[in-house]
Amino acid sequence: MTTPSDPQNPGSSDPDPGAGAESGGNQEPAGGTPPPSYPPPGSTPPPPSGYPPPGSYPPPGGAYPPPSGPPPQGPPPGYGTQQPGYGAQPGYPPPPPPGGGYGQPAGGPGGYPPPPGNYGAPGTYGGGEYGAPTADQFSIGEAFSYGWNRYKENALSWIVVILISLVVTGIIQTLGNVSSDNGRIFWISAIFGIIATIVGYIFQGAYARGALDETSGTKPDIGRFFNINFAAVIITAFLVGLGTVIGLILLIIPGIVFAFLAYWSLTFVVDRDMDPIEGIKASFSVISKNAGTLFLLALAVIGLNIVGALLCLIGLLVTLPVTMIATTYAYRFFTGGQIAPLASAAPMAPPPYPPNQQY
């Protein structure tokens, strides 16, 4: 016998009570509780052994609760090392700024230690101003050795220029003597004397030009010697000569001192295209600051040229160029100019001036 179908669920029918009894099952009537062997609805199976109980996991990063009590007085262990997700946390001191603090080396910018060695500030060399070595580093012997080595590599040009100066000066003096009847006509003799002096000034500038090129690493040819500002050279040499004569009149010593301090006036004018007054001031300034060493150099130059003059003037063809190059070597040394090494004869332009203001 079957029961009628449920009007709200026509596809279902009540099971036969006898069927359940025959199968040995204890089926609860509809609306009762499920068998106790099933887990409660909405629950999850228990986690495997060894895992922490639910709710014991740490909260997400950055959500830690503030510690109880006052904040710690010092940094926590390991503070200062960068960790993934590390950031400012409530109750802890802020992280140190870059360039120092915990976990970073002390020193220069960015926390890096200072560089090794005794490096100077930018624009300095050897602990002093760039290109301005101290006087005790200068060697007179090295200066003359440099002059000799440069001269012997270009001796022919120097000899030709010196011979030209002697020949031209001799011709002017001869014409002056003939025209003035051996000096009896004063004004003619004076005119030729002035011409000979001006020519001598020009050759002084030519020697300065040649010596400057030698220290720059260039072998000057004959034409290069005369690549100078003639007007500036003549005026500078005239002012130096006039000051020397006036000083000699004033008990001699002032004239010697003036000539010594103004010795590089032509060199400054030729090398740096200065006007005559600036060249004289620059020479006074540099030589006066290094007077002791340069005075010894001047004595050596005078002595060597005296020896050259005693050798029937032939020795001057060697001693004059060597001493000119040696004194120009000293000029470049004390003013921070370029001194080409002896091993290189390639042309090299001097550095931009002034590399070091000493005047």
Rank of each mutant, 00 (worst) to 15 (best):
A190M: 15
V240H: 01
P341Y: 04
Q173E: 08
G223L: 06
I249Y: 08
L310R: 02
Y146C: 02
P48S: 10
L266V: 14
G170M: 10
T134M: 11
G292K: 13
F186S: 13
P40C: 02
M348K: 15
G11A: 13
A196H: 01
Y64W: 06
G336Y: 07
F333C: 00
S13K: 12
S68H: 08
P321R: 01
L261S: 05
P67Q: 14
E129N: 09
G20N: 13
G74W: 08
T335K: 07
I302D: 02
T33I: 10
Q204Y: 09
Y125T: 09
L261C: 07
E142V: 00
S145F: 04
F138R: 05
G103L: 05
N229S: 14
P351F: 08
K152V: 08
G50E: 07
Q137R: 15
S179V: 15
I314F: 04
P84Y: 04
A132M: 13
Q204L: 13
R272A: 10
Y207W: 13
G247W: 03
G62N: 10
G120T: 11
D221F: 02
P96A: 12
N118W: 11
A309E: 01
I325R: 01
F334H: 06
A135M: 04
V322Q: 01
A326I: 03
I253M: 03
L156S: 07
P105K: 11
G101Q: 06
A231V: 12
G308E: 06
A237P: 01
V286S: 11
Q173G: 15
F226M: 05
S344Q: 14
V270D: 04
K219W: 00
P10Y: 06
A208L: 01
T2S: 14
P77V: 11
A300T: 12
A330G: 08
I159R: 00
K289Q: 15
T323D: 03
L250M: 08
Q137L: 11
V322F: 05
A21K: 15
F186N: 12
A343L: 03
G241F: 09
T327Q: 15
P65S: 06
T3S: 14
I191V: 14
P341E: 12
T244A: 09
M348L: 13
D14R: 14
L261R: 07
S165E: 09
P254H: 00
F334V: 07
T81I: 14
P347T: 07
V318M: 03
V160W: 00
V160N: 00
P96N: 11
V318H: 08
W148H: 01
A262V: 02
G205V: 08
W148I: 01
S43M: 15
G103F: 09
S139K: 11
L250T: 06
S12Y: 15
P47L: 10
P220E: 02
E142W: 09
P94G: 09
P58L: 03
G80M: 05
G247R: 06
P94S: 12
G32V: 04
P113V: 07
P66T: 10
A345C: 00
P54A: 07
F186C: 01
A196E: 11
